[in-house]
């Protein structure tokens, strides 16, 4: 009786415990690549052969993503980037709020990009909440494609579209599909990055998954 009536643990305490035990998945290991529309079927076929969820066929998704920025009030740090995703094909699902930190590419021996990441399921008026919080919308797009799983790894093959302002069908941004291989894990589980590299090697030469350096892309002549 006395144990059952013990005071509930506070949310702060349980979060501190989870942080100490290092069970919060706050790191994302990421590899990216792209494949031309004409070649995507071959890649999908290969993934169907390699991945876990093959019986039911690949899982499809159709999401809209809005990217927000929150400026540093002291103008010293880079703005905080936040992303909100909602499923267009499952409207009653919660919104996903994502904080993504600066990507760390490491040296050439590190197999994947590592970036800090927080994925939070949210309901309610999240967009309005972020607007009032002081965030500004930077850009938005929709992304439609397939999701595969291999153990803890997630593989998405998806096409990025501009948000259409009219009833016209959304316009694709390019003639290719974006391919991402990622794992969300607690800090320090670097062994998973090796598994990812091994898996990426199995997809060659259909797609070349790599550590993409956005800073260098930004300086490329357009």
């Amino acid at each position: 009786m006395s144990a059952a009536n013990a005071a509930p643990i506070t949310a702060t305490d349980s979060l501190t415990q989870a942080l100490k035990a290092n069970i919060i998945p706050n790191q994302e290991y990421l590899l990216q690549g792209s494949v031309l529309d004409s070649a995507v079927e071959v890649l999908l076929h290969r993934l169907r052969g390699l991945c876990d969820n093959v019986d039911a066929g690949p899982e499809t998704f159709d999401d809209q993503e809005v990217c927000f920025s929150l400026r540093d009030p002291n103008q010293q740090a880079a703005p905080l980037m936040l992303r909100v995703r909602k499923a267009l094909d499952a409207r009653d699902m919660p919104f996903q709020l994502r904080y993504i930190g600066q990507p760390d590419l490491g040296d050439k021996n590190r197999p994947t990009v590592v970036r800090s990441s927080l994925d939070i399921a949210c309901s309610g008026m999240l967009i309005e909440f972020l607007n009032e919080l002081g965030c500004r919308i930077e850009f938005e797009y929709s992304v439609k494609g397939y999701m595969f799983r291999k153990g803890r790894m997630k593989i998405t093959v998806a096409k990025v579209f501009k948000i259409s302002q009219s009833a016209m069908p959304p316009e694709p941004i390019s003639q290719s599909y974006l391919v991402e291989l990622s794992v969300l894990a607690p800090t320090g589980q670097d062994a998973i990055a090796e598994d990812m590299r091994a898996f990426a090697d199995q997809l060659r030469p259909l797609v070349q998954l790599d550590k993409i350096d956005y800073k260098r892309l930004g300086h490329m002549p357009s």
Partner: peptide, 8 residues
């Protein structure tokens, strides 16, 4: 404005 979210 309210938002209900998970523990994170």
């Amino acid at each position: 404005i309210h938002v209900i979210a998970d523990g994170l």
